Amino acid sequence: MPKISKTESESTEEKIKEAARKVFMRKGFSGTRTRDIAEEAGINLALLNYYFRSKQKLFDEIMQEKFKKLFGVIIPILNDATTSLETKIELVVSGYIDVLSESADLPIFVLNELRKENTSIVQNIPFDKVIFQSSFMKQLKERRSDINPVHFLISILGMTVFPFVAKPMMLFSGLADEDSFTLLMKERKELIPIWVKAMLEST
Rank of each mutant, 00 (worst) to 15 (best):
F52L: 02
H151E: 15
S5C: 09
I74C: 11
E90T: 15
I37V: 05
E187S: 07
P107L: 02
R35K: 12
K189P: 02
L171Q: 08
L100Y: 00
V130E: 09
E142M: 12
L157A: 14
N79I: 10
V93F: 08
S103D: 14
S145I: 10
K66S: 14
F109S: 04
T182P: 02
S94L: 12
I125A: 02
I192H: 02
T203P: 11
K66W: 13
E61V: 10
I97Y: 00
R115T: 14
A81N: 15
K167V: 02
S103N: 14
R188V: 04
L91V: 10
F152G: 07
V130T: 08
E142A: 13
K138H: 10
L106R: 03
E142I: 09
V99A: 09
E113I: 02
A166F: 09
E8L: 13
T7A: 15
I37G: 02
L184S: 08
A19Y: 02
G31H: 00
M25V: 13
A38E: 01
S30F: 12
Q123L: 15
K189G: 00
V73I: 08
G95Y: 01
E40V: 05
A20N: 03
P193R: 05
I156C: 06
V110N: 01
K22I: 13
K3M: 11
A41V: 05
I131M: 12
W195M: 15
I154D: 15
K197V: 08
E14W: 13
R143I: 11
V93L: 10
F132R: 11
I156L: 07
K68P: 09
G28H: 00
F24G: 01
L58R: 04
V150W: 10
M137I: 14
L58G: 03
S11R: 14
L78N: 08
M63V: 08
Q139Y: 05
E18V: 14
I192K: 03
E39Q: 10
G28K: 00
K189W: 02
R144N: 06
D36E: 00
T83S: 11
I108Q: 14
V165E: 08
S180V: 00
F29T: 01
E61P: 08
S202G: 12
L78Q: 12
D146E: 09
R143G: 10
A104S: 10
K129E: 15
P126S: 07
T160K: 05
I147F: 07
E201R: 11
S145Y: 12
S11K: 15
T160I: 05
H151T: 15
E86R: 07
S120F: 13
I147G: 04
I43K: 01
A46W: 08
T83V: 11
Y51S: 04
N118L: 07
A104Y: 08
S54C: 01
G158A: 13
E90M: 12
K66F: 12
E61H: 11
E65C: 08
Y96C: 13
L191V: 13
S5L: 11
T32V: 01
E90Q: 12
L111M: 14
S11I: 12
F132N: 09
K167N: 04
S54K: 01
S94V: 10
I192S: 03
L78P: 08
T182R: 04
